[in-house]
Design a protein around this nucleic acid. Sequence first.
DNA 1: AGCTGGTCCTGATGGC
DNA 2: TGCCATCAGGACCAGC
Length: 275
Amino acid sequence: MPELPEVEVTRRGLAPFVVGRTVETVAVREARLRWPVPRDLGASMEGKRVEQLERRGKYLLWRFEHGTLISHLGMSGVWRVWPRAAVPEPQRHDHVDIVLASHLIRLTDPRRFGALLWHRAEEGPLASHALLAGLGIEPFDPRFDGPLLHRETRRRSAAIKQVLLAGDIVVGVGNIYASEALFRAGIHPRVSAHRLGHERCVRLAAAVREVLAEAIGVGGSTLRDFVSAAGDEGYFMLEAKVYERVGLPCRRCSAPIRRIVQGQRATYYCPRCQR
DNA sequence: AGCTGGTCCTGATGGC
DNA sequence: TGCCATCAGGACCAGC
């Protein structure tokens, strides 16, 4: 399940092969994703140079002068890089190939929760795109801190776990790292967001940043294998303190970790360390 | 077979 | 009454 760290590691892995390169051809062979991949994607990109590869939340943005390829990995999406001399036969869940001079970049997404859309520059600023406009602040933006989190949660009565996941205050916190960040901050996942005091918001903001940064570090250590990653290990995870550890002893206090369901999603926490 | 999950969408609810 | 922000639930999928 790609969370922000996976997307960021993907961005760093792809960038050397993509930025400053010109797209030769695009093949859309399985257009069914969350929304149909535009058939004329090739016409939009072929012969054009990728200026930058950026990330906003969990969206990966291929910036061209005249537009942007907006990509989301959903639940199971992976971008892989192949030398053109060694490209394997397309498989069932291979959706799109982007062919550059020396490498081919392939999007695979079995569950099809991902997205691949084209935004023309003349439509207006990318940040105003419907998918991006409502996103919260980046966790590594220096403006994201405890006071901001405190201010933004005053009107939110929902559980803090679900407010983190909503992504309209801070982006990039998925189901795994929401549990992990709350454990690190010592906050019970069911606490109403607006009940959190200033001090606890300071701790939670720091925990979110730390957990995500450490996870990027873990994924970053695999970057040297990014091209033709033979192991197909698209995802990675920080050593979980609570995630999927129901019944196991808390690594800090040994109390059994609990599993609850919030918004139809699993949450894990330590009943003694988190209040 | 039934359960899982990230995000968008829709429709309901709440506050003013 | 109306509006806006927030909230809850449903839908989308293949793989186990």
